[in-house]
Simulated scan of single mutants.
Amino acid sequence: MRSYRRRRLLVPVLLCAFAVLAARPTAAGRQPGSGTLGDLGLSAEVVRLYEEAAAATQQYEAGRREAEEQRARARRAEELLDRQRRHIAALDEDLGRIARAQYRGSGGLPVAAQMILADSPEDLMRGHHAFSQADLAVNNAIAKSRRAEARLAADEAEAAAQWQVLEQRNSQLAALKAGIERKLEKARSQLQGQADASVAAGACRGAVRLEQPETDLTDAWVAPVETYELSASYGSGGSRWARRHTGQDFAVPIGTPVRAVGAGRVVRVSCGGAFGIEIVLKHEGGYYTQYAHLASVTVDQGEHVSPGQWIGQSGSTGNSTGPHLHFEARITPQTGSAVNPVSWLEERGVSL
């Protein structure tokens, strides 16, 4: 009786297990954009390397500022040394003048000899007074010279120590900078290689969930990248475009975080073609923005985004001659409906 009840319970459990296994997608049946564990792990590693390089850059900048301050202190010490040298030279000149004055005032005889040869007590007293004054002047000059020489020696030692610290700091900064460049090159190379493979396959790997930075943005609209140089502008001509350039290019290194310029919804994430990896957002008012030539995306189609949210990383995929972000403002999600993106952003309070 107990065995029968156990069999009755076992059948539903097995059926549920088969249903779960049947519902799980196989590796061959993944949708484009779902990604694989290996792809996501590599993307996360690239992001980690980029953040590490950014932290190292901050350390380098802090060290560079410290080195500049050390250099300024060393320059001030050198200026003090020059003043001390000039002061000692002046004291030496004073000693020479005192000696010459004594010789001329005694008719060529030392003051002590004049005292011995004095004819009267008055001459003796005058000689003693002259000798005391000359001796005091000489002693004062010698004491000043010795103090100046001591200060000079101390200042020279301090300047040498400061320059030594500066050279050590400069060596450390050079090594740190070289490490930064190696890490950045490695991160960007991995990121771009991964993106090129996606474009060649015509299928996106899926969103890499970057940890969003804490911001205090209060504006409804922002620039698509935080720091940049403007390159090809809207309407410019060139052999790379069939007619005219339809967007504004932002020259930025591979891996630079790309931001949503305003609140909206992701209506397209695609990989392949002239734009390489691209994202299209729909905003209120019927306008769309495009972000092209990316190296990775951090959002999936259908997601809602907020102003300044990281939606991808810049790259050089598709019809691109170098790392940059191609940004467009459109009245439809399709190519061919672009408006001047610089003017469009200016109307929303964003000056490029």
Score class of each variant (00 low, 15 high):
residue 252 V to D: 10
residue 187 A to T: 05
residue 90 A to C: 00
residue 272 G to N: 13
residue 332 T to M: 05
residue 127 G to S: 10
residue 126 R to H: 11
residue 310 W to C: 04
residue 254 I to D: 02
residue 289 T to G: 11
residue 320 S to E: 06
residue 349 G to K: 10
residue 69 E to F: 02
residue 283 H to L: 07
residue 165 V to A: 13
residue 53 A to S: 12
residue 231 S to A: 14
residue 66 E to C: 12
residue 131 F to V: 01
residue 19 A to K: 04
residue 12 P to N: 11
residue 305 V to Y: 01
residue 315 G to V: 11
residue 44 A to D: 08
residue 33 G to E: 01
residue 253 P to W: 02
residue 169 R to F: 07
residue 214 E to Y: 00
residue 7 R to C: 10
residue 221 W to I: 06
residue 33 G to D: 03
residue 326 H to E: 07
residue 336 G to K: 05
residue 335 T to G: 09
residue 337 S to A: 06
residue 94 D to L: 09
residue 55 A to Q: 11
residue 77 A to H: 06
residue 7 R to P: 06
residue 224 P to T: 01
residue 160 A to N: 11
residue 282 K to I: 00
residue 87 H to G: 03
residue 272 G to W: 12
residue 45 E to R: 10
residue 212 Q to V: 06
residue 271 C to A: 12
residue 274 A to K: 15
residue 324 H to W: 09
residue 220 A to G: 14
residue 336 G to W: 04
residue 313 Q to V: 11
residue 195 A to E: 04
residue 326 H to V: 07
residue 154 A to W: 02
residue 26 T to F: 12
residue 250 F to R: 03
residue 333 P to A: 10
residue 234 Y to N: 06
residue 110 P to R: 03
residue 228 Y to C: 00
residue 200 A to L: 15
residue 176 L to A: 15
residue 89 A to F: 01
residue 311 I to H: 06
residue 297 V to K: 03
residue 48 R to A: 14
residue 43 S to M: 15
residue 158 E to G: 12
residue 4 Y to D: 14
residue 243 R to W: 01
residue 301 Q to T: 15
residue 78 E to T: 07
residue 218 T to Q: 11
residue 81 L to N: 12
residue 347 E to D: 14
residue 81 L to F: 00
residue 121 P to N: 06
residue 289 T to K: 05
residue 277 I to Y: 03
residue 233 S to P: 00
residue 227 T to K: 12
residue 254 I to L: 00
residue 92 D to P: 00
residue 323 P to H: 08
residue 37 L to N: 03
residue 232 A to I: 12
residue 327 F to A: 04
residue 329 A to Y: 01
residue 273 G to V: 14
residue 174 A to F: 08
residue 42 L to D: 13
residue 70 Q to K: 15
residue 316 S to F: 02
residue 8 R to F: 11
residue 239 S to V: 00
residue 304 H to T: 11
residue 184 L to Q: 14
residue 221 W to G: 05
residue 71 R to C: 09
residue 7 R to H: 14
residue 48 R to K: 11
residue 257 P to Q: 07
residue 88 I to F: 00
residue 177 K to H: 15
residue 135 D to S: 14
residue 165 V to K: 12
residue 245 H to F: 08
residue 276 G to S: 09
residue 253 P to A: 07
residue 94 D to Y: 07
residue 305 V to D: 01
residue 349 G to L: 09
residue 237 G to K: 10
residue 194 Q to G: 13
residue 177 K to S: 15
